[in-house]
Structure formats: structure tokens, C-alpha cells
Simulated assay, not measured.
Amino acid sequence: MKLHGVADVLYGAYNRHDTAAVAELYDGNGTHEDIAMGHPKVGRAAIAHGLQKFFGWFPDAHWVPHVQIVDPFGSVTITYLLTATLQAQMDRTIARGQRISLRGAHVLHVRGRLIHSSEDYWDAATFQKQLNA
């Protein structure tokens, strides 16, 4: 996978809610960490499972990538806007159709043709504020 194309492929799979396609973009021991949560997902199955849970809560989730910065040594950073509506109870948060609009940034570390690791940076306080509104 070319570094310039990884964001298009990843966000295409995200927006189709194709968890298997997302998982296949990672190497077998790949990791994904939502930095705000602090619990990395290790391996394709764990990455897919985490996304399946997220799509269960937010079945209309949609990412719009904005700025993309490519490091020729194997990293891509993408800023994005995520919009979604909470449509199922998420832990203790009751779904009341809360809309979220959350800016974030992914940092993807690519080795060969696959993502070796990714970090997702977003503001947990903004997320909670929108869920509790």
C-alpha cells in the first residue's frame, strides 16, 4: 500500500462500516490505540471487534478526512471530522439520539504494505460533553 493512498482506503472502509476490510489493512500483530481511552487493540480480530462495538453504538458514523501529512519513512497523519448519532446504550450512557461532531487525528505507521500500528487522538471531554448534552 502506498503511503499516499492508505488514508483513502482506511476511511473508505470505515465509512462502509466494513470492519473486516479495516482489519485486513493491519499486519497480523498490528495495534490500534484510541489514546483518550488508553487500551490498545492488538491484532486484526481485536481491531475489528472494537470497531463492531463502536458501530453498534453509532451505526451512522462517518469520517471526513482533512489534512494528510506523509512522512516518507513510513508514517501518515490525517486530521478528520467524525459525525455520528448514539443509537444504542453505551456502557452507562442511554441513547437519546445524541449527535457527536468530533475532530481528531490518526497517526498510521506503515511497514511494507500494511499498517503496523495506529494511534487515534481525540478529545474525551468534548466527546462526553456531547453525549451528556
Rank of each mutant, 00 (worst) to 15 (best):
D18F: 04
G5L: 06
T85Y: 12
T93K: 14
L86Y: 03
V76T: 03
S118A: 12
G56Y: 09
H106M: 13
Q52F: 03
R111W: 00
H62G: 12
I94H: 14
S75D: 06
I100T: 01
F54H: 08
A7N: 09
R103M: 09
K2R: 11
T79A: 12
L10F: 04
I115Q: 03
V110E: 00
A133C: 12
F73D: 10
H4M: 15
P40V: 06
L108S: 02
G12R: 11
V67G: 04
Y14G: 08
D8I: 10
V107Y: 00
W122S: 02
V6R: 01
A48Q: 07
A61D: 04
I78T: 10
A105N: 00
G30S: 02
F127I: 05
V6L: 05
R113G: 14
L82P: 04
Q98G: 01
F127E: 06
D91H: 13
W63F: 15
W57G: 14
A20M: 05
G56A: 09
E119N: 08
P72V: 03
A125G: 08
D18G: 07
R16F: 12
L86G: 02
A124G: 12
R96D: 09
A88H: 10
Y11F: 15
F58C: 03
D71W: 05
T79Q: 15
D123K: 06
I78G: 05
V76C: 07
A46D: 07
T93M: 14
S118W: 04
H17E: 07
L10C: 01
G38A: 11
T77Y: 05
T126C: 13
G43V: 02
A105R: 04
A13Y: 03
L25T: 00
G56Q: 06
G97M: 09
A48N: 08
R92S: 14
L131Y: 05
G43A: 06
L102H: 08
Q87K: 15
D120T: 14
Q89W: 01
A133M: 09
Q87N: 14
L3V: 05
A46K: 06
L3M: 10
I47V: 01
